[in-house]
Design a protein around this nucleic acid. Structure first.
Lengths: 113, 113
DNA sequence: TTGACATATGCCTAAGTAGGCATATAATCG
DNA sequence: CGATTATATGCCTACTTAGGCATATGTCAA
């Protein structure tokens, strides 16, 4: 048996590196499919299919603009991940607080945009 | 092609519901395999195999105690997830701040232990 | 309408893997 | 040592899925 359907599970949707790449590409804002294809080393059908999965899970939303489809992130749907992770942050607060510090540090350093 | 090996990727390791269940079961502390089998509706080999995956990724650590193997969480290895998620928290701080509030709320309410 | 551009889908194959079952390994006890 | 308990592995099958390719669908322009 394989993993339960990625279509209905944010965890599975995000488990795919390429899908994370797409989400990362959308962090800067709304983008057309073609733009994503240009930014990432993926074929157009590949991108479209991954966008479909991400869309089914709610992580991205689509908007029509002429013959283009503009996709944007819907971070609200990262909530399950966030909640799940939060349980562990609570349990081992001290260790993860250090992690938070570390993150704040590297984020403070490299903020090009 | 299937997803890239779960053995080398925290995201994939955590994508499996049963593996998350095991991790959740270990939140309260170190547990023997048998204890996990008792707590969750899974067979012993099933639990052992999932523990193997989690172990390979570093999310759990094993300690021998007689004929038992005690497993405990190593939250440090949740860092990739945390870091990845942090990027989005930064980008949409206002939205996820509300989520943080919400989480703090429900966590403050139900703290039985 | 015809043609060019933009994106989505369908079909197919290869590959990874979860779970069941039996069994191997390991440790303890008598 | 032999028996029992505790856990890990191996084999097998079924199911999911990523990616390639071709093509359908949709939109705009002339």
């Amino acid at each position: 048996m394989a993993r339960s359907s990625a279509t209905s599970d944010v965890f599975n949707a995000v488990a795919e590196v390429h899908r994370r790449d797409i989400l990362d590409a959308l962090i800067t804002g709304e983008k057309a499919v073609g733009a994503i294809v240009n930014d990432l080393p993926m074929s157009q059908p590949q991108v479209s299919k991954h966008l479909r999965v991400l869309s089914d899970v709610g992580l991205v939303r689509c908007r029509a603009d002429g013959r283009r489809r503009l996709y944007r992130l819907d971070p609200e749907h990262l909530r399950p991940l966030h909640e799940w992770l939060a349980k562990y942050e609570q349990a081992w607060n001290d260790r993860l607080d250090r992690l938070d510090d570390y993150l704040a540090e590297i984020q403070g350093q490299g903020e090009p945009q």
